[in-house]
Design a protein around this nucleic acid. Structure first.
Lengths: 233, 233
DNA sequence: AAGTGGTCTAGACCACCGT
DNA sequence: CGGTGGTCTAGACCACTTG
């Protein structure tokens, strides 16, 4: 049998995927080790490693030292979402981006907010609310709290011309964050701002970002009805 | 100046992140090439490559041959979501998983479905609706269409004891898929099944999976009010 | 203890693409 | 054209984990 040659890691990966798909390597089953595969494929072990490591990162393989490599029994789907800057998302769809500041003040946040941001319960934060529009139509409501102890420069910015969403990108580095997606019923305030019926289902993103141990900002984005966030698998 | 030594790719990555964070490497700015960094860090170029490639995959760097490596100007946040098998998600929270089949029949789908699945508009598909429960409480509604030309074995399965969600994992390989997240207002049917008020905002996942050019299945998951999908950044 | 994946190295060639 | 990242190689050592 003439073994086709696998000269790059992508072709090795393709072959691995083919075997998994064809059940030559069944779910939960141990596959040959890297050295053996390298010999079979006629390439270096590091090439095999690159291919299999990549599959493990996608959740298709489960690799452990000594235990070897197995085809994932429950290939939990993993999707990589790109959370866009609002203005870019809108402009990429060929629409005109619009922005309206609705509110800006320094105030003590509700307990739930100070708890989520791990700030003192009586520490005032900068509170900003704004509306993002696509071609004049309400697109999303932004409700944001900014930790001015971490980003004092935010106090100098009036957010009339640039959204906090965008401003923070350039002025507030962060190290990590948490994000949650959910569905929320529009309150009367929200309905009025988004020009939608009260009680409408709004796709919602809640995000808290951190710079080390200190929270930078917490934001809730409420999207107008009909919004979808899409990606591939 | 005693340059600390960077002997592994993670420490190189940490140092790169530090410089980006400290604005030593500013957004949009070109950073030194791999060879120079390797020399500075006292490691092999491939180690630097591993570190920077990984950052590029996270969207923090933008790399192009000849053009070099830049700090991403708009570091669009990327989050990797794990879309769980319903039963596992519920059991991992320490709750008891329950499942009820509500409907199962072969029928011609609505045009929107056959279009999304790229099947002929008059081709019948297997239609399954079911309820997933957590400790007896409605958790999510599953409304699914299965392409029996691709997965004929599905016709032999009654889906009384195992959800299509789980059965397909073991019997229907797929090569890729599309997924969309949105918010939907509960219709009277949905409200009744999920024991929630009509019009409640439901977090919704729509997914179509493919095996090559043929669609395998299309599913809509409607989660009971209060559901959140979370991840880190 | 031993087998496995994880990583590093030094060198090489190549694909791409800005100039 | 020439510089950059992308990749491959052959070999080596190591970390982890299982039996």
């Amino acid at each position: 049998m003439s073994t086709p040659s696998f000269r790059n890691w992508q072709s090795v990966q393709d072959e691995a995927l083919r075997r998994i798909h064809a059940r030559e390597w069944a779910p939960g089953e141990l596959i040959p080790n890297e050295a053996d595969l390298a010999e079979e494929f006629g390439c270096a072990r590091s090439t095999v490693n690159r291919a299999l490591r990549s599959l493990a990162e996608s959740g298709i393989l489960d690799r452990r030292r000594k235990a070897g490599t197995r085809v994932a029994a429950q290939p939990a789907a993993r999707a990589t979402l790109t959370i866009p800057v609002m203005r870019h998302e809108i402009e990429e769809r060929g629409e005109t981006y619009g922005y309206q500041l609705a509110y800006r003040a320094t105030q003590v946040p509700p307990i739930t907010t100070s708890a989520a941001m791990a700030t003192g319960s009586r520490v005032p934060l900068l509170h900003v609310r704004a509306l993002h529009l696509a071609s004049g139509t309400p697109y999303a409501l932004e409700d944001r709290w900014i930790n001015t102890e971490v980003v004092p420069a935010a106090l100098e910015e009036d957010f009339e011309a640039i959204s906090a969403n965008e401003w923070l990108l350039h002025h507030a580095p962060y190290t990590h964050g948490e994000i949650a997606f959910s569905a929320v019923s529009a309150s009367d305030d929200m309905a009025e701002a988004l020009l939608c019926p009260e009680g409408a289902a709004l796709f919602t993103i809640d995000r808290v970002t951190w710079d080390g141990a200190a929270s930078v900002t917490k934001v809730r984005l409420l999207f107008a009805p009909g919004y979808q966030m899409r990606t591939g698998l």
